[in-house]
Amino acid sequence: MDRPTVIDTVKGEPKERQRFVFKQLLKRKNVVDLLGLLIPVVAFSFAPHFYSNEILLISMMIYIALAQGVNVIYGLTGYLPFGYVGFYGVGAYGTSLAILDLHVAPEIAIVIGGLVSAILALVLTPLLKLSGSYFAIATLATAEALYALIANPSLKNITQGPYGINIGAVYSSGGSYVVAVVLLGLSILTVVVIKRSRLGLALRAIRNDPVSASLSGVNVVLERTKAWVVAAAIAGLAGGVFAWTITIFYPSAVFDISISVFAIVFALFGGVGTTFGPIVGAVVLYGLYSYIGVTQPQYFQLIFGVIIVIFVLFLPKGVAGIANALIRRFRMRTIREEA
């Protein structure tokens, strides 16, 4: 039987626990997660040597980050953020306006973008008291409202309204690629860390049964809020990275609902609740999209819709679930053969 992966904080428990903790680091689950972090980061770091379309690579990294953000919210709390793109857009604008109005360096501006999104998430915490389906729709409405707000001609002087952002002055293909890799690593690391933390334990409990969780002393709303803010920050940083990469964009580019949709589908396809799932989902599906979807968006929408329906009905654990099931069956067979 596998040992549980909860690393508890030391609360006066005997010393043998600490040795146990170290041995745990070498356990299979941890090695898998470590690989899940290192492989993509290394791969993308060296990819420009083999593939010159940096914008595509950056877009893929952004989508992996967004999918991991969805993983945090949906995979860990069961709440589906249809309006996830709202944080992305706010992050993009926060970053751009920080560059234009505050004249800070792009890296700092991106962090500001992430912060603004996190603050927005805090403001929106009343939404977390709603039940799952209301929450999903409310986030959708919020994202659309943010779009209507920011693109509003009346706000031209603050946000440039519908005329779009131009931060071409700070364009730097090298710089934006580096922050994209950092974002990638950060988003994967976040999932890995949360899964092992008290927060992760609380979130799994809440997903199983919120009432039982609260009777164990878990402040359900607070823990959900933590996941919510973290996911929002990831989206905000992603938006900032996008802004610095493309430097000229209209509001519709960063508030497009299909960005949320993609992130959700990637996460669902790859398998929520796992580290590798969203990475696989984003790489495979976004790769497919950039190959055929850009010229034939309708067919792609059709494929996406079918994927959603099939995976939701028959493969709720996604590709990762299939992989895990196969590995388990393989292991069972080897055990039986050895016996």
Binding site: A202, N208, A213, S216, G217, V218
Partner: peptide
């Protein structure tokens, strides 16, 4: 908490 082990169920209450 059905998807979690007995130990994790207790861990939760213990932590929180």
């Amino acid at each position: 908490l059905s998807d979690m082990t007995v130990e994790e169920n207790i861990d939760l209450a213990w932590h929180f």
